[in-house]
């Protein structure tokens, strides 16, 4: 049934279904995805926080839903979660502002 919204929270549960229309690629993706989030040089808890920050910079509602819950499950506090979001926000705004140097270079060249 068609939804009235572009984003439906229930669709997150259907994520695995993408494999049905392209089995090999879907399976390879989920195998990779699962491997990435295993404990490694970084703990699964650290990875959850990175994922949460990136979820915000990507502004992906499904990812925010999933990694907020995942962070809670791993005992992450709300203060830690908000700091992670600020890290994402700082990089986003920094990435915008650092381009200001490009603008300054251009002004200096054209009108310096």
């Amino acid at each position: 049934m068609a939804s009235d919204n572009y984003y439906d929270p229930k669709d997150l549960r259907k994520f695995g279904k993408i494999t049905e229309w392209s089995e090999e690629l879907g399976e390879k993706f989920f195998e990779y995805y699962g491997k990435v989030f295993e404990e490694g040089a970084l703990t699964a808890r650290e990875k959850a926080l990175i994922a949460l920050a990136v979820a915000h910079t990507e502004q992906c509602p499904y990812c925010i839903d999933a990694y907020t819950k995942d962070s809670l499950q791993r005992g992450v506090t709300k203060e830690e979660m908000m700091e992670a979001v600020h890290v994402g926000a700082a990089i986003k705004s920094g990435a915008t502002l650092v381009h200001g140097v490009m603008m300054m270079n251009k002004v200096n060249k054209l009108d310096g």
Partner: peptide, 18 residues
């Protein structure tokens, strides 16, 4: 046991953090 509407994660990792 979790403080809200979510499941507990890996017991060994949680033990380490606690």
């Amino acid at each position: 046991n979790p403080s809200g509407a979510f499941l507990p994660s890996n017991q060994a990792s949680m033990e380490k953090d606690f």
